[in-house]
Amino acid sequence: MLDLLKSALGNSDLAEIVWLSLRVSGIALVFATVVGIPIGSALGLGRFVGRRLLVALMYTGMGFPPVVIGLFVYLLLSRSGPLGGLNSPLVPNLFTPGAMVLAQSIIAFPLVAGFTMAAVMGVDAGLRQQVRSLGATDWQTTVTVLLEAKVGVIVAVIAGFGGIISEVGAVMLVGGNIEGRTRVLTTAIVLETRQGNFEMALALGAILLAITFVVNVLMLRLQGKAFTE
């Protein structure tokens, strides 16, 4: 196994697979975070008509099977689909990393938004009032609450990352597991397993676990003192 891991690590194809995995999941996580944190904050802090419905939809999205999201994106991007037929440069083609990023962004978004919402809702309502009383604008109040909920917000990002780096169904559907183009760690593991190369599949699994571990440790460092205390 160790030899296999060594040979796998020395393999240039593997480096490409690892790089693509990180690139696709990393870009998807950035999109999901940029959209998810503001929306999660708005749902957690705002009071508006339709909020309950949106929260229910958000919770549903958190438990949505990734493969169904993959199917949804597949249908959207296929030539006869509503987006695929547009031939727009803004719409990624099926079986490209762009399509995989889109699918993973949709998977990660409710996780980031939902956990952010829960984190900001956990901040003492009196603190928000106190912050406003000290002269904060709406924007300053939201940023202050997010900073107070920092630990929970980072957990939201970690949950989003965990949900997509380990995901296989959606990337398989919209990416197609094409060698040298859309093959990522999870789809490579599936392929190796199907071909009976269990040791290689295990070695790839170990690499995936190691990547997830390192990324999570880095994110935990962002939690700073709050985590170490």
């Binding site: 603190l127 009032q129 912050v131 009383s133 000290l134 202050t144 107070e148």
Partner: peptide
Amino acid sequence: VTTVSQRPILLDRSVRANVEFGLRL
């Protein structure tokens, strides 16, 4: 205008950071 409430709710920061918060805003 500002309020000092019955229950002091301080930010999860140092005393100094709490006191200078309004100035930062």
